[in-house]
Design a binder for these strands. Sequence first.
DNA 1: CCGGTTGTTCAGCG
DNA 2: GCGCTGAACAACCG
Length: 242
Amino acid sequence: MPEGPSLVILKELVQPFKNKKVIAVGGNTKLDVTPFAGKKIIDFKTWGKHFLICFSKGTIRIHLMLFGSYTINEQKATPPRLSLAFQNGTLYFYTCSIKIIDEPLDNIYDWSADIMSDAWDAKAAIEKLTQHPDTMVCDALLMQDIFSGSGNIIKNEVLFRVKVHPESLLGNVAKSKLKALVTETRKYAFDFYNWKKAYVLRKHWKVHTKKICPDCERPLTKTYSGKFKRRSFYCENCQILY
DNA sequence: CCGGTTGTTCAGCG
DNA sequence: GCGCTGAACAACCG
């Protein structure tokens, strides 16, 4: 489930519960979520991969990590980590990380770093990139303070789109190319969102989990690159190492 | 059917 | 205190 665009889809799906009172909370979370029973949800927000259930006093933060999932109105076989029951339905979260946030969200979240947000600030992202000259682009695309919501799929697909080798150092990449990287990340995130909604996301992968370059038809390289050692799929021929 | 993974945090170490 | 490594989490797909 987890990259940013998937969370925006989740936010849309739970709109029937906005401004609704939670009649019961459940689940096997160790956190004490009982104070939220009887309280009204005033908003659902997302920041990258964070799903935020906002009450007038406090917020429940859900992070689906790698294996997390959710259902609406129907339970899975496995016990939910958290469930929120409403008069008009129930929301279930499985195998996720949950935190309670007491501070105002604006104190913790830089909304302009969220690749799906209306507040997204491309200029600020470019500025942040120039501050990490020794970082590889493959790592940069996973840094949530720069590209909140970007994950490994977005990383691989964007690098192929802009024809940049994942192990290029930011300091070596021309400013115009950094701009293209930032623009394309935002653009791909929305393509991801639309394809995911239409259940055709996988079909549109050009390099992620693929074996052959769609452009030159040579074999793709698969390595665990950068500080984060996440899978990179790329074409040595088409993607330039800066 | 087993291996790998759309992610993050934390403990332990040098 | 820092950076690095590996573990933990625990579900689904191919």
